[in-house]
Simulated scan of single mutants.
Amino acid sequence: SPNEVHDGTWHHAWNRRDATQQAYYDKHPERFRRPPRTPAPADIVGINLPKPTDDAKAEPERLHAA
Rank of each mutant, 00 (worst) to 15 (best):
S1L: 08
P2I: 08
N3A: 06
E4P: 01
E4T: 06
E4W: 06
E4I: 00
V5E: 06
V5K: 08
H6W: 13
D7M: 05
D7Y: 10
G8W: 02
G8E: 02
T9C: 04
T9M: 02
T9P: 03
W10R: 02
H11E: 07
H12E: 11
H12F: 05
A13G: 05
A13V: 07
R16G: 05
R16E: 15
R16Q: 14
R16W: 12
R17I: 07
R17V: 10
R17C: 12
D18Y: 04
D18M: 05
T20N: 02
T20G: 07
Q21R: 05
Q22H: 13
A23T: 04
Y24V: 02
Y24M: 03
Y25N: 03
Y25A: 05
D26V: 01
D26K: 05
D26R: 09
D26E: 14
K27V: 01
H28W: 10
P29E: 07
P29F: 13
E30G: 10
R31Y: 11
R31H: 12
F32E: 04
R33V: 15
R34G: 01
R34V: 09
R34Q: 15
R34D: 10
P35G: 11
R37L: 09
R37H: 13
T38S: 06
A40H: 13
A42G: 10
A42Q: 12
A42L: 13
D43P: 07
D43A: 15
D43F: 14
I44Y: 13
V45T: 15
G46E: 03
G46N: 00
I47M: 04
I47W: 12
N48P: 00
L49F: 05
P50I: 00
K51S: 14
T53D: 01
T53Y: 02
T53S: 13
T53L: 08
T53M: 05
D54F: 06
D55P: 00
D55H: 01
A56C: 09
A56P: 15
A56T: 11
A58H: 07
E59N: 04
E59D: 04
P60L: 01
E61V: 11
E61N: 05
R62N: 06
R62Q: 09
H64D: 11
H64R: 10
H64K: 13
A65G: 06
A66Y: 14
